[in-house]
Amino acid sequence: FCDLNIEVAQKLADQYGVKLVYDSHEAMLKEVEIDAVSVCTQNVDHAQVSIDAANAGCHVLCEKPMATSIEEAQQMID
Score class of each variant (00 low, 15 high):
Phe1His: 03
Phe1Val: 13
Asp3Phe: 07
Leu4Pro: 12
Leu4Trp: 14
Leu4Tyr: 14
Asn5Trp: 02
Ile6Ser: 03
Ile6Gly: 03
Ile6Glu: 10
Ile6Thr: 14
Glu7Arg: 09
Val8Met: 15
Gln10Tyr: 09
Gln10Cys: 11
Gln10Pro: 01
Lys11Ile: 15
Leu12Arg: 08
Ala13His: 08
Ala13Val: 07
Asp14Cys: 02
Asp14Gln: 08
Gln15Phe: 15
Tyr16Thr: 10
Gly17Trp: 00
Val18Asp: 00
Val18Ile: 09
Lys19Gln: 04
Leu20Tyr: 14
Leu20Gly: 07
Val21Ser: 06
Tyr22Arg: 04
Tyr22Phe: 12
Asp23Pro: 03
Asp23Leu: 11
Ser24Cys: 11
Ser24Asn: 15
Ser24Gln: 10
His25Gln: 03
His25Tyr: 15
His25Gly: 04
Glu26Thr: 08
Ala27Tyr: 12
Ala27Met: 09
Ala27Gln: 12
Leu29Ile: 14
Leu29Arg: 07
Lys30Asn: 13
Glu31Thr: 12
Val32Trp: 06
Val32Ser: 07
Glu33Thr: 14
Ile34Ala: 03
Ile34Leu: 13
Asp35Phe: 05
Ala36Pro: 04
Ala36Lys: 12
Val37Ala: 08
Val37Leu: 10
Ser38Val: 15
Ser38Tyr: 14
Val39His: 13
Val39Arg: 10
Thr41Tyr: 10
Gln42Asn: 10
Gln42Glu: 13
Asn43Ala: 06
Val44His: 13
His46Lys: 07
His46Leu: 01
His46Val: 01
Ala47Ser: 04
Ala47Met: 03
Ala47Leu: 00
Gln48Tyr: 01
Gln48Asn: 03
Val49Tyr: 02
Ile51Lys: 09
Asp52Met: 10
Asp52Pro: 03
Asp52Arg: 06
Asp52Gln: 14
Ala53Met: 02
Ala54Gln: 12
Asn55Thr: 13
Gly57Gln: 07
Gly57Asn: 03
Cys58Gln: 03
Cys58Val: 11
Cys58Phe: 06
Cys58His: 00
His59Gly: 07
His59Ser: 14
Val60Trp: 00
Val60Thr: 11
Val60Met: 09
Val60Pro: 00
Val60Glu: 08
Cys62Ile: 11
Lys64Thr: 02
Met66Lys: 02
Met66Ile: 13
Ala67Val: 03
Thr68Trp: 01
Ser69Met: 09
Ser69Val: 12
Glu72Ser: 06
Glu72Arg: 01
Gln74His: 13
Gln75Cys: 07
Met76Phe: 06
Met76Lys: 00
Met76Leu: 05
Asp78Val: 12
Asp78Tyr: 04
Asp78Glu: 15
Asp78Met: 01
